[in-house]
Design a protein around this nucleic acid. Structure first.
Lengths: 138, 138
DNA sequence: CTACAATCTCCAGCGACTAGAGGTTCAAGC
DNA sequence: GCTTGAACCTCTAGTCGCTGGAGATTGTAG
């Protein structure tokens, strides 16, 4: 049986985060010692690894909740898991596109700055006036 | 003089957000009518446009606070404004790189899914075991 | 048996808003 | 002048996914 600290070390998830996951029901209520300290088994370590990995991949907690539920029903069709992953991927792509447009705008702004005084600074000017931007959308 | 609603329409910033900006000191405390309603002039509209545009470009409120202060001292060197913009751009690039790695991993995951049952689903399997990922870092 | 690291619970805070409750004011139409 | 109702006011709480602190208790090594 693992203490919360050991579980934390094994999974790379911080102790308060593990407690938080228990609180929001992402991790099951761990059994306690007589002194009310949490103890964990191997299944909990796996589950926490799953959660951590999904979080690293940017899945939201609600999506992870669904994915965990699905993973407990191995006989069901995996269409839903697939849909969740694809939906998330679309969102990631959307964010990449937005950030890329944004980067272009920032680059443009910074390159035009002649390193003089604030009064002529393109950075400040462009911020003050959107119409000086390359692209309408960002 | 503009009411908060008119200012909102002109700048595209929502009414509660304008009040929030006043609260955190990003917008000055607007003068009030006898009935305690806010009234704004042209300068405030410009300032709010500046803020909105900077937010659209992803600058944090603290950075915007600094940029606004700088924009009020037109004789000063714009090195600091430049530095803020470059710092932000570096951060945006970092996020793009991270999301791109993430997308690759998701793509890999989703493409390998054979649309069968959850038990053999690659999406679930990969989430459960990080070592099945293409790249160590994401 | 003592020391002290680790754990416990509970609460507050982050960033940047957003939403709602419950009350007041402004402006237009009659 | 009066009524209506949209717009405004303040205040509080909620969002997401944690993170940190206070103050008390427990587990374990020497």
């Amino acid at each position: 049986m693992l203490s919360i600290g050991e579980l934390s070390r094994r999974t790379g998830v911080k102790v308060p985060t593990i407690r938080y996951y228990e609180q929001i029901g992402l991790m099951p209520l761990a059994p306690r010692t007589e002194g009310k300290q949490r103890r964990y088994g191997v299944d909990e370590a796996s589950r926490l690894n799953f959660i951590r990995h999904a979080r690293e991949l940017g899945f939201e907690v609600e999506a992870i909740r669904e994915l965990l539920q699905l993973s407990e029903k191995p006989d069901q069709s995996c269409a839903e898991a697939d849909a969740i992953a694809r939906r998330h991927m679309a969102e990631v792509e959307r964010r990449i596109d937005q950030l890329t447009a944004l980067r272009a705008e920032l680059q443009h702004m910074v390159e035009e700055c002649s390193h003089g005084r604030v009064g002529e600074c393109r950075v400040i000017q462009v911020l003050a006036d959107h119409s000086q931007c390359e692209h309408e959308r960002h």
